[in-house]
Design a protein around this nucleic acid. Structure first.
Lengths: 356, 356
DNA sequence: CTGTTAGCGCCTTCAT
DNA sequence: ATGAAGGCGCTAACAG
């Protein structure tokens, strides 16, 4: 016959309670579930006994029976690079926070970006390990989205692919508003030429921030430069170094992630320049450390935790109602600190012919 | 009867394959599991059909049957404060990294630190959701440890409680060696009075770093000060501010976490002093950002990812062999950057009467 | 080599 | 108000 469940000492199951009380398992189950069609006396005895033997239901069995995973998956992309950004921590934290105290687990899953990615997704989705998925860092023409849409599995994308044929659920920041506010701030300080430090990877959020940057700059009559690298401090360092070497260099830069911004600040300092007067820097993200850098960084604060918690809410709600409401676009806040200043040798904003 | 499993379109089960091929479910199961006692022809047909209907096994059912969760849990402590440290990200990353490509899931679980904590642990352990647990931030007289030891559930503690009656599996850094090396570095620079910025919470690692600090200082004849706050930047700021206000203030400080160190650096700067000559700072941790701060911080680099990955290895191995090997103590590395320097108005190390 | 049988622990009809 | 029976999907033991 089958071996006993090996991982546990005794069998703390419903059967045990049923046997010591001389009732059926069914009754025990019902009493514990709080059904009203159990006599009060019986319920009391069952509950007492359950408490006595410290009964804890087996979640796995329960999940099999209910056909529900009671889990939300967060997929960390990219096998090699991995969990590279504090941003992911904030997402994990937001999801974790929302799930604390519930019976729903947070699964941190990985997927490589190669040919096996599709299989990985199938195993996660069709293997029944989760009820919903958080999918960050959406790529252009993202096959993961296609798959999830096709099988109708509940998921939330972080950032949307603008031209995707199917509408799918996503959360994102209001990139245009965020960028416009940041550019306005720079223009007010007197900057006339601004760079964007971006990534050349096929990431939707990078493209979207670039587009918003160009649009805002056009509106303000600001000269633009876009430099692309990777999403890492070292790349921010390299990009900024390249920018500083230019004779007609911009006086300010916006970086599309905190990590790039951190590297950029360091490059400015190592070139013997002062962040702010010599080169103003604004970063998308605003993870806690940028406020503690020198100088404290002006940042477009993205409410990652709140967005993720809300996304989890949506996924949980969708288990019952397919039309659960979802807040798609989130407002950011420009937190002005000391990495932005009027450019050296420039007048104040009021002197400038701003094309507004 | 029971409803159909609601979460899935069709029933991609073994039964489906069995029926279309006219063989038993058992045979299909065996063929897919790669057992040798299946005829090659049958196996081939089964595999082909499984591929055709894109069969993916149901993990939940498999887990129930095998009596195994195929999951490792990482418990994030403290409901209110939460996932407050980059350190946790590194742990999650280490565990995630090790688990990538396996069929074992990483569950990020939460537990409050109140009266319900015990129940939370019971639900996780006895509910069969994980095969093993990573338990960070061990407290003094930690009831979680008592419980896990009592039921014999596989777990790894991060940091050990020195006086616990039962030996249990843990990983930790070699705190004494790490601290001695840092203090030696400060002594070599000419520092004669050093502070430790610590936490007054009942955390084993804080006590352990304090003890190592006092021991190393005694060996070097260095004057000591210990200030205790919380584990946050703001606390580091407050502690350092307090230190700077002292007339006979130390010339250097070691902070027990990166977050405290980051706050401390900022306090030094805001008091118009220079980190290094006016106040040298070394921090335990060395998360990636401290190298990008100004000045780049000298740090005791803790190999968190490697430690966690190894802990996961151990938990996985323990599922088969109860005597799986475990590396308990890990070497740290002192990464000297620019936050440590000779104190102002002091000679070089060679001039000093060091009690070695 | 293959099929039958019997569960893993829980929950839910259906019958009493 | 309670019990018996069946099944979620998979796998192991025991026969042939």
């Amino acid at each position: 016959m089958c071996r006993q469940n090996p991982g546990r000492d005794g069998n703390m199951s419903l059967r045990q309670i049923a046997q010591s009380l001389g009732v059926s398992i069914t009754t025990v189950s019902r009493a514990l579930a709080g059904y009203s069609d159990v006599s009060a006396a019986t319920r009391e005895r069952v509950v007492a006994e359950a408490h006595r033997i410290r009964y804890v239901p087996n979640e796995v069995a329960r999940r099999l029976q209910r056909g529900r995973a009671d889990g939300i998956g967060f997929i960390v992309p990219g096998g090699a690079r991995g969990f590279d950004d504090r941003y992911f921590l904030n997402m994990v934290e937001g999801a974790w926070w929302r799930l604390a105290g519930t019976e729903v687990d947070l699964l941190v899953l990985s997927s490589d970006q190669g040919p096996t990615e599709a299989l990985t997704y199938r195993r996660i989705v069709e293997g029944g390990r989760v009820d919903g998925l958080l999918v960050p860092r959406i790529r252009e023409s993202d096959s993961r989205i296609d798959y999830l849409c096709e099988v109708g599995f509940p998921f939330i994308a972080f950032g949307a692919e603008p031209s995707h044929p199917k509408a799918y659920a996503y959360v994102d920041i209001d990139t245009e508003a965020a960028t416009a506010e940041a550019m306005r701030h720079l223009a007010d300080l007197g900057h006339r030429s601004v760079a964007l430090l971006s990534s050349d990877e096929a990431l939707v959020f990078a493209r979207s921030r670039e587009a918003a940057f160009l649009k805002a700059a056009a509106g303000l009559g600001i000269t633009t430069t876009i430099l692309c690298g990777k999403l890492a401090e070292a790349s921010g360092f390299a990009l900024m170094s390249e920018l500083l070497a230019r004779p007609d260099r911009p006086t300010a830069a916006i970086s599309i992630t905190d990590r790039i911004g951190i590297g950029a600040v360091r490059a400015v300092r190592e070139h013997g320049l002062t962040v702010g007067p010599d080169m103003s820097i604004i970063t998308f993200g605003d993870n806690p450390v940028v406020a503690f850098m020198h100088p404290p960084m002006t940042a477009i604060s993205i409410p990652v935790q709140a967005m993720t918690a809300h996304a989890v809410d949506y996924l949980l709600a969708r288990r019952e109602r397919p039309d659960a409401p979802l807040t798609r676009l989130w407002k950011t806040e420009l937190v002005v600190r000391e990495s932005t200043a009027a450019p050296r040798g420039r007048g104040m904003a009021s002197d400038l012919p701003l094309a507004v």
